[in-house]
């Protein structure tokens, strides 16, 4: 199967991102489960590790990609006016991009290299 088949890229991105997000979620929940008395310093030091900052950034990027494909599919199903659909796509894209920059700024402010 070729990656250039219509919709194949989105289909694949949706599945790859879901696997990463699911694995990260299980990992994050088990971290919180094993740290019942989490305080600010422990949390900050934990997230300041480059490996945590990078894997967390990837987690949010994959969530945003997953949301893009998912919401795009919903819009394709329910919004049939081409111009309106395109406008919502643009707003959605800018919105998700903003969320990504926000996460990047948060993680850059704590990461210790």
């Amino acid at each position: 199967m070729s990656i250039h088949v219509q919709g194949m890229r989105a289909w694949l991105l949706q599945r790859l991102s879901s696997v990463y997000v699911a694995l990260y979620l299980v990992f994050a929940l088990s971290f919180f489960w094993h740290s019942p008395d989490l305080n600010y310093d422990t949390w900050l030091n934990f997230m300041a590790q480059p490996v945590m900052a990078i894997s967390s950034l990837l987690f949010f990027i994959f969530i945003l990609v997953h949301a893009w494909v998912g919401i795009r599919d919903v819009l394709i199903d329910y919004v049939h006016n081409g111009a309106l659909r395109f406008s919502i796509f643009v707003i959605l894209g800018l919105y998700l991009l903003t969320m990504g920059v926000w996460v990047l700024m948060i993680l850059l402010s704590v990461v210790q290299i």
């Binding site: 600010y40 310093d41 945003l64 949301a67 998912g70 919401i71 926000w102 948060i106 402010s109 704590v110």
Partner: peptide, 23 residues
């Protein structure tokens, strides 16, 4: 549920920001 989770994204990021900014 996917659409609901989509709307929860900014709140999750806001909580992340709050949790890391200061004690």
């Amino acid at each position: 549920s996917g659409v609901i989770l989509f709307f929860s994204i900014p709140f999750a990021i806001y909580l992340l920001a709050l949790s890391l900014r200061s004690p």
